[in-house]
Design a protein around this nucleic acid. Structure first.
Lengths: 204, 204
DNA sequence: CGGTTTATCCTGTTTTTAAGGGATTGCCGC
DNA sequence: GCGGCAATCCCTTAAAAACAGGATAAACCG
């Protein structure tokens, strides 16, 4: 029985590229594509593919959220993340949300086919580059607590410690401590480079 | 005579997508593709296509730089920018570097064909979305002076006013004024949101 | 030429952060 | 039950940045 594959990606050229890569494969049945999260969910109500290739950047919702939602409603559908970015936190979040694999958009036909065949067996697949990124990331991961992330975002919004404290119903000194810890975790000296690094590492 | 088209993009799936979109078009001759700037330049030494579809994000060099270089050496080759981002400054820089058009990767086959046929005549083509972005950007452009950009980058590096002043051989109060002007131009209250907005708008 | 922009510099005051030092509570896993 | 971590809170001092309201010389441009 052929493996039913569905694509969610807002870039027409990528959809065409994948279709062209898969069209001559015998074990693959192309069931269609969606350009956004909403039409993906609508499609799933009618029929479920075996595998969804899912972009991380969608116009209406992040692929990470869509991934979680799909896995909740249809646990038997396997999801392979698809992205141009080989960014540690993205890959990690995608896997945390229930994805079974991750492939970069510069993958070859062979890699894509291998990913599909591995994932359909219930195993996990990483593209070489993605796993390189992950292992590199493990050497020096910046792990923030929920509260720290919250504070970090409010700092980026331009709020002062006092304003953040009011918003979160805590003392300004608490925010000061969180700030202190954020600077330490990122290994920077001040807010400017904190925000810059946090942005580059996709925390904001 | 068929229009010779060449692609520069490091994402295999996108290359495949474009190839598949163009392969049945009679007026188009696919002359090949490159995954990076270096092999693009190597190809051009042997033969010149009529049109290059060029990604903005390449592994070894930015598409903007490659665009400039190609136009210097081979002025008769038309270049169409290709990107997932519809980011004002990217589009602007690409056009400033000699590109004749700009197409987003979610373009349809029709759009792509229209872009090629318009550009080959020596005219300029913008995809609908790209031109929307440009006109929107014109309403509220943030124009920084050379000095302001310089200071902005040093702020993002985490330097204090005094350190920046030393580095640029000016008074700390001068840096303070530049900072004041940067905050005003971005319409923000402090460094944190300055860096955040500057990053989002690709100034850093 | 004359206006505009750019870059430079100044004197203040007030607010906000950074950097040190601690302390307490509650929760989780071993 | 104990160690570790997360989250909370406090103090002090010095540095840095924001805010206000200026001025001047040079370069750029129509």
């Amino acid at each position: 029985m052929a493996t039913k594959v569905f694509i969610v990606d807002d870039h027409y050229m990528v959809v065409e590229g994948i279709r062209s890569l898969l069209q001559n494969e015998k074990g693959i049945e192309w069931t269609g594509h969606a350009m956004n999260a909403a039409s993906c969910l609508a499609f799933l109500q009618r029929q479920q593919p075996d595998i969804i290739l899912m972009d991380i950047n969608l116009p209406d919702k992040s692929g990470i959220d869509l991934c979680r939602e799909v896995k909740e409603k249809y646990p038997s559908v396997f999801i392979i993340g698809l992205s141009t970015f080989n960014q540690q936190s993205f890959i990690q979040k995608m896997m945390d949300s229930g994805a079974s694999g991750y492939v970069l958009k510069n993958a070859t036909q062979e890699e894509l086919m291998e990913a599909i065949s591995v994932v359909i067996k219930g195993k996990i697949y990483f593209s070489d580059e993605a796993s390189q990124v992950l292992t590199k990331a493990d050497v020096n991961p910046i792990l923030l607590t929920r509260r720290e992330k919250e504070v970090l975002e409010l700092i980026a919004e331009g709020l002062t410690n006092n304003e953040i404290a009011q918003k979160l119903f805590v003392s300004p000194t608490t925010i000061d401590t969180h700030r202190k810890n954020l600077l330490a975790k990122f290994g920077v000296r001040n807010t400017a480079s904190l925000i810059r690094d946090a942005t580059k590492l996709q925390f904001i």
